[in-house]
C-alpha cells in the first residue's frame, strides 16, 4: 500500500458523514413507517450501517483506529440485538399470528 495522501477533493469527510446521516435517516423513516416487525428491525440495522460509516470515516480521518474498534462492538450489539429481537418477534408472531406492529397497542392507557 502506498502512503499517498492527497489534498484533492475526493471523498471529503463531510460527504461520508452526509451519506452516513442519509442512511441513518432512511433507516429511521423506515422504522417509523414500516409496519412489519422484521422490516422494522432491518431498518434499525440500516441505521447501524449509517453509524458504521461515520465511525470509520472519522477513524480514517484522524488515523485513529479506535473508531474501527467501536464498529466491532456495534457489530456485537447488532448481532445480540438481532438474536433477541428476532426471538421476540417470533414470540409476538405466535401470539397474534401477524407481524403487524399495530397489532400491539397495549402501551395505550
Amino acid at each position: 500500500m502506498t502512503m499517498v495522501a492527497t489534498a484533492m477533493a475526493g471523498g471529503s469527510l463531510a460527504q461520508y458523514l452526509i451519506i452516513s446521516g442519509v442512511l441513518m435517516s432512511i433507516g429511521l423513516a423506515g422504522f417509523l413507517t414500516r409496519r412489519n416487525l422484521i422490516v422494522m428491525f432491518l431498518c434499525t440495522e440500516l441505521m447501524f450501517q449509517g453509524v458504521v460509516i461515520a465511525m470509520v470515516a472519522f477513524s480514517r480521518w484522524h488515523w485513529e483506529v479506535s473508531g474501527q474498534v467501536f464498529v466491532i462492538f456495534i457489530l456485537t450489539v447488532a448481532a445480540a440485538e438481532a438474536a433477541l429481537a428476532l426471538a421476540l418477534v417470533v414470540l409476538l408472531y405466535r401470539r397474534r399470528d401477524t407481524l403487524d406492529a399495530e397489532a400491539w397497542t397495549e402501551l395505550r392507557e
Binding site: 429511521l28 422504522f31 417509523l32 413507517t33 409496519r35 422494522m40 406492529a101 399495530e102 400491539w104 397497542t105 397495549e106 402501551l107 395505550r108 392507557e109
Partner: peptide, 17 residues
C-alpha cells in the same frame, strides 16, 4: 393530546424521537 397515545410502538417512537 390523548390520540397521540395510540399504543402503537411507532407512534410513540415518532413522538419521542
Amino acid at each position: 393530546l390523548q390520540p397521540l397515545q395510540s399504543g402503537a410502538v411507532q407512534s410513540h417512537a415518532v413522538v419521542m424521537i
